[in-house]
Design a protein around this nucleic acid. Sequence first.
RNA 1: GCCGAUGUAGCUCAGUUGGCCAGAGCUACUGAUUUGUAAUCAGUGGGUCGGGGGUUCGAAUCCCUCCAUCGGCUCCA
Length: 645
Amino acid sequence: MIKITFPDQKVREYPEGSTALEIARSISEGLARNVLSAKINGVVWDATRPIHEDAKSQLLTWDDAEGKSTMWHSSAHLMAEALEYFYPGVKFGIGPPVDHGFYYDVDLGEHSISPEDFKKIEDKMLELARQANKYVRKEVPRTEAIEYFREKGDEYKLDLLEDLQDGSITFYQQGNFTDLCRGPHIPDTGYVKAVKLLNIAGAYWRGDEKRKQLTRIYGITFPKKSQLDEYLAMLEEAKKRDHRKIGKELEIFTFDDDVGPGLPLWLPNGAVLIEQLEKLAKQTEQEAGYQRVRTPHIAKENLYLTSGHLPYYADGMFPPMEMDGEKYYLKAMNCPHHHKIFKELNPSYRDLPVRLAEYGTCYRYEQSGELFGLMRVRSLQMNDAHIYCTKEQFAQEFNAVNEMYLRYFKIFNIEKYIMRFSTHEPKKLGKKYVDNPELWIQTEDMVRNVLIDSRIPYVEVADEAAFYGPKIDVQVWSAIGREFTLATNQVDFAVPARFGLAFRNSQNQMETPICIHRAPLGTHERFIGFLIEHYAGNFPIWLAPKQLSILPISEKFNSYAKKVLELLGISDIRGLVDLRDEKIGRKIRDAELKKVPYMLIIGEKEQAENKVSVRKHGTGDLGTFGIPEIIQLIQKEIDKSLNVK
RNA sequence: GCCGAUGUAGCUCAGUUGGCCAGAGCUACUGAUUUGUAAUCAGUGGGUCGGGGGUUCGAAUCCCUCCAUCGGCUCCA
């Protein structure tokens, strides 16, 4: 007998060799039907794999992320079986579960596949699923595994076997399909009740662009048909939030072929958004002791040779222009210019920290395939500043920056994010990273301590640092689920020395400052793109391009409406009058569709009483207000949004 | 940059096997209407069918090429 400990700490005894499925059945048949896999002593196992020793056990169902993963991993095998049926000789790369579904990388050889083929593959998968074929685990000696895939001619699996030790190799077989796989899998294919193939993409073998590109097929499966319908509905909803769609509808930005890819044109509404954002940032930074500077968009080659960017990152910059026998580059970052300003200021330790802020426009040559609406562009305005401080001041400065991030997140109601702390990889010192092992460790410790002390949740990832120091990136997700860096906070202990930056310390010795690169609002392009999706275009009133729309019932009230707009304008309220010869229902509809926060309706009664009827976007009629009252209402709402300390 | 898909009026789209001057709705403009909380009616205008080249008696439709966009991969200082 073995002792099984459940998550609630209850212990029960089972015969040696029992499976998670049998354990589930001993509790209830219903549970047994839902068990997809189990966590045995912290490792996810097949529900049908015998357990031979005392263990902590957690049964995994569709409600557990790991249960879903098991299902999707098995679904990848199911899709592989269907693919092999239609495309004999297909070779398989890897086929893992992902956040929403699974994919399989395949080499179709002579064949090709398009979305039109999805239906027949889905149908085949469902047919195979109905057969409820068992997923059978088999431990295989390495030589036998190699023999199997050599005979099958699958060089990708052979490549994978290169990295595997004898004794750790397992095959899983269901129906007519056998795969090299560590598992685990669901008990049989019958658990799959709904299948949807999502898209096709190219993917390099082992993620290496020098290797062959395979065809990646994405799909998702569910244990219930209704769950698939819900998922598809959710995808449709997400598409409605897409900043590219809303950005067009609300006339925020556009791209033009003659201007160039990745070079956004900000329409008047978009310009208001940026200006409001900058107004907030300037105010925040002024309070935090930053000074504003301004620098040109280009610089001579030598600046980037000094900074060390050119040898490493020339590919990411626009090619140089030649002028008077000199090469000039469009700046891809502001720091070198700011370093020069620091040098000119020639501060002593008494003047530190020096905090230089500039929302400089930078140009980066992103690969054409990388461009993505406002989220990934070639001209970008960084919410940039560089803080030069002493080692002693570092922790406090770094912490203050993090606090500024958190304050912004509160203002924008950003709740779903991850702080990603990127550190160096010692083996790559001198190549990818500046060769100064002590400083790396010392700086990373300083950053880690700040994070721990301020109890900011974070994840640490090795080998993702900047070449000049560790960094913290704030990761968020777009409406369609793509992850990207919103804000960044980087430590630089290397480049200031390259620029010969120094200050005189209290002992009258020259010392190199540490530099903190920080961009809490990332780039204004990406931040606005994110905000459009975050708010689905329903901006808080302080940001809204038009805060209200004044809607006269008929032409007779146009002049009173214009007067109201003028009065509101004196209080810095942004609005417009809908002077079109349309009925009020139409004007309201259009203002609602444009997501204008407030509509002021003006007719005979309002004009006579010197008042306005207020309708709130998405809410409806609020009743009649005097002009001072409406000003107060809006100003209160703005204060509430911005004063969140 | 790579794989795959897409590109028709300001916007959203139809035109699916090549065949009369390329269509619709919304927008815009003109007129009528003077309107009370999510679309008033009528008329008018608007398109090098992404660009270039080719096949054909004839191309939005077939082929080549370039550009852009979309989904991924790679990249992201």
